[in-house]
Design a protein around this nucleic acid. Sequence first.
DNA 1: TACTTTGGCTAATCTGAATTAGCCTACCGT
DNA 2: ACGGTAGGCTAATTCAGATTAGCCAAAGTA
Lengths: 205, 205
Amino acid sequence: MDTKHRILDEALTLFSEKGYANVFVGEIADRVGIKAPSLYKHYKNKRAIFDAIIDEMNRRFEEQAKVLQINGKDASADAGIYKTLSEDKLLKLGREFFLYYLHDDYNRKFRKMLTLEQFHDAELAKVYSKLYVDDPLSYQGMLFGFMVTAGVLKTDNVQIMTLHFYAPIYYLLTICDREPEREPEALKMLDDHIKQFDRIYGRNN
Amino acid sequence: MDTKHRILDEALTLFSEKGYANVFVGEIADRVGIKAPSLYKHYKNKRAIFDAIIDEMNRRFEEQAKVLQINGKDASADAGIYKTLSEDKLLKLGREFFLYYLHDDYNRKFRKMLTLEQFHDAELAKVYSKLYVDDPLSYQGMLFGFMVTAGVLKTDNVQIMTLHFYAPIYYLLTICDREPEREPEALKMLDDHIKQFDRIYGRNN
DNA sequence: TACTTTGGCTAATCTGAATTAGCCTACCGT
DNA sequence: ACGGTAGGCTAATTCAGATTAGCCAAAGTA
């Protein structure tokens, strides 16, 4: 019964490293510890495995969206949290975000898989843009909006300020996905980036 | 004789849209206007076509690197160019860079192809990082270095300033590669980004 | 003019990977 | 105890797509 999920896991791992077309059904089966034909007891064909991954992902991210929405409401209700934003807090926020996206297995693998498949059809392109481009920007934009209201950040264009915060994070994320050995260097730049960001947009400066 | 190059062109186009593994030799041949077996008069096999594209690319970019180096020397010799950097000049610089990378056929296709193949082997990962991550950053960093020296930009960390300039450009570039219809939106953000950048780092503010 | 090379074509061939057939066993509910 | 089903296996089967064989004409060259 658990096999069905193991298949998804192993398939996702492989797809994220080599791309859908370069993964053989037999490879997935091997990793799961069964023979290729047995896969067909669980999924109609190779494509169905891919689709199931996408479905599963949609499920997870919708779930997460709800959590974030609630957090958002909390944050707006209790804007006091941000009254005392310090450089340290901003650093912590940025690092946590970065490391979560980078190390969370499901996120990382799914992002890499989408990276490899994004041009195959418009549907996947939209999913990628939503998850790794638009949603983070609008979520962080919302948080920064509160901070501006609270007076701890100052700008006359929250969207661009958010872009200035997020784009470097995205840039560093793509580096680490491609060359994991560069993570230390990326973390160093991340810190420098956020400190500079705080100096630019923070109230205290 | 020209066929050999046509093959590379059409192959690059197809690889950049569908990825190496999803392109059939016959498809390339079709586009060139010949039959699949005839391809083998020009290239040993499918892989050799891919390799030839990489070689050709290396050739072009080395060539371009020389030009940029010369420009760099010019710029440092004649730092006066930057004495009067205005918002308009910065906008022009950013837009030109962005649109060149986005619309130049060879650049765009090659970048998209590398995007799809970047995880296949460490070699390609390095090429991608070099061309679209490290080189632009260090080239722009050099220019900004001159500008800081000339006093038209101010910062105590040129690298991070350059990151703040380039990362949003990179971010917008990936959006347009994925969803070309978002180009207008991206151009708008690009302008807003650069204006804001000028306000932050420019001398006049 | 004959010889060779170049680059095209059609008709195989080869291979590898997805999928199907058909069998078997363990377990589950009755 | 027993029929059914879930999930595994081995042995085909299928098929697409890369590559090779072998032929031919045009164009260049001695």
